[in-house]
Design a protein around this nucleic acid. Sequence first.
DNA 1: TTGACAGTCATACGTTCGTTTGATATCATA
DNA 2: TATGATATCAAACGAACGTATGACTGTCAA
Lengths: 221, 221
Amino acid sequence: MKHQSRYRKTGAPPSRRPEAASLGDASTRNRILAAARPLFAEYGFNGTSVRDITSAAGVNLSAVGYHFVTKELLYLALLQEIVGPLAPRIEWFTRGDVAPLDKIERIVRAVFDHIRANPDMPAFMVREMASGRTPSGPIVQAMGRALPAMAGVIAAGQQQGAIRAGDPILLTLSTLAQPVYLYLTRGAVAAVAGVDANDPAVHARIVEHAVTVVRAALEQR
Amino acid sequence: MKHQSRYRKTGAPPSRRPEAASLGDASTRNRILAAARPLFAEYGFNGTSVRDITSAAGVNLSAVGYHFVTKELLYLALLQEIVGPLAPRIEWFTRGDVAPLDKIERIVRAVFDHIRANPDMPAFMVREMASGRTPSGPIVQAMGRALPAMAGVIAAGQQQGAIRAGDPILLTLSTLAQPVYLYLTRGAVAAVAGVDANDPAVHARIVEHAVTVVRAALEQR
DNA sequence: TTGACAGTCATACGTTCGTTTGATATCATA
DNA sequence: TATGATATCAAACGAACGTATGACTGTCAA
């Protein structure tokens, strides 16, 4: 919220990682976060042991207890680091004098930008969703801000006749499904297509594909 | 494969659960499978203990070792039971003298049908995908059949001028993203919208929404 | 009646888990 | 130089884990 009002004044979108400069150093705490990120993403919370994390980070086993108290609080801190910056960026693109469909396109591109900077984000998101229970705090907060914001843009577009009729929330989820699902399955896609999933050209192709699909799905004709 | 040729002759789509009659009884083996299903879906493989499963099933701890040898083989048997019947059904709808876009719509409806009969399927799927590694055998087999089959339908539609240009594999994934992602997030949707996620009317609304979005996304104009 | 077999059971094995403990190291401040 | 706060370390704790073991029960053909 503090960031939000500041950025509105400057006219620039919120930075992708506002805290990178101050917290991105190689302190023990950050080594743990950096090591835990791909492990939690690939093996899940229960499939990753504290020993896995600390040995990957090259720190002592007790460092997790000292810096994060428990494994779960480490997980939540990491989740906040991953999904926290996304909602303000989405909200920023819902404002301004831009056609609703163009706002949605910019949001989709911003989500892809965020995913490129945080390639593990889709894995964290869908693991949280798969549980069926209420997701963890950072996810609930991010979704609670992003979903209504995007649905509002879609509803405005419907009033203007630019976006097709339909439940704005469902249309929002259909939109967000594209970056999340396409990136989640990009390993399988790359294997089928015989390309490198981390190739920037592949990323760019996926982004353009998703934008085209989303615009076609929403556009009123 | 055996089923497939049989069904082609009869002209009826493959049953949703061909083995339900013979294996759906309350034997210890099936009690274990039925109890493991929601537990693996909600808590994941590592988050579910053999003791969780056997006590939920009301059977002895050793029954898993006796009937499935290991926990992982139990998981794979369950995964096969969940995703195994899907690929033949998708393949069946790719055949016949039907417009490509209508084939895709029928496939989307069939996937929703399958998900309604197996509500845990999206959770199993995305957990497998989130790992980043090659998914388990049943998933690889199902995707290896469903993806090319659907991409072929889309490519045929593109040749006819009925479906927009674009990578058929990416368009297939964008299509499958709708049922999987919408059902994965249906708990959150229901909470936001204040409705019951298991209400058949909600299911029907989601299906119609997804069909509309998919047709609009693919249709050539 | 007997023997073999499929299935179920309580119990225990060795390992790994998250967390805790107490000692030690580093360093700015008094 | 002393002191207190911050940080790291090896070691250990009890609990929970997946799996293995051997006894027991029922069924059915010989």
